[in-house]
Design a protein around this nucleic acid. Sequence first.
DNA 1: GAGAATTTGTACGTATGTATG
DNA 2: ACATACATACGTACAAATTCT
Lengths: 83, 83
Amino acid sequence: MIKSGGVTIDYLGKTPLWQQLAEILRGKITSGEYQAGRRMPSETTLVQEYGLARGTVRQAMKSLEDEGLVVRVQGRGTFVVER
Amino acid sequence: MIKSGGVTIDYLGKTPLWQQLAEILRGKITSGEYQAGRRMPSETTLVQEYGLARGTVRQAMKSLEDEGLVVRVQGRGTFVVER
DNA sequence: GAGAATTTGTACGTATGTATG
DNA sequence: ACATACATACGTACAAATTCT
């Protein structure tokens, strides 16, 4: 069984870590794993899951927000936008 | 009083500055002054200590990394490899 | 309503990576 | 080899908003 799709972070490659994470999360949104209107995993959770610094996670989230895929609300969380 | 051992940088000689620095650092590693598993002085620190440009320091560090003596981690520092 | 816990926002400092002149 | 600038990344601390107990 081959893990295809580059679902994991490549810490040695050229692509920035935050871009890789953004790509992963984008995939989980478009695939429906993260459903519209529902809350995404918190930054702290993602930090633990992927072993990245919070700033790096936030940069990935920021890019998703800029794309209009998610909205971030202080004190509440980050939510997948309805499409 | 003569400084023997080439512990200082010779800015006029034929040997590249980065090679001289690499040699110095290599010595401090093998002698145990820079202990295995611990962090090396930062590039900025070495820049100040030896009066070299950062690019030159990086070239020296790169050579040490190629030799397997140290590993460099973005955002954390350069560490002496355990042997 | 009070206080604790959670979550995102902001700021700073430090360090390595890359690019240009 | 030097100088500069910016990007990427880690770590820490605290603030602000919301939710939970």
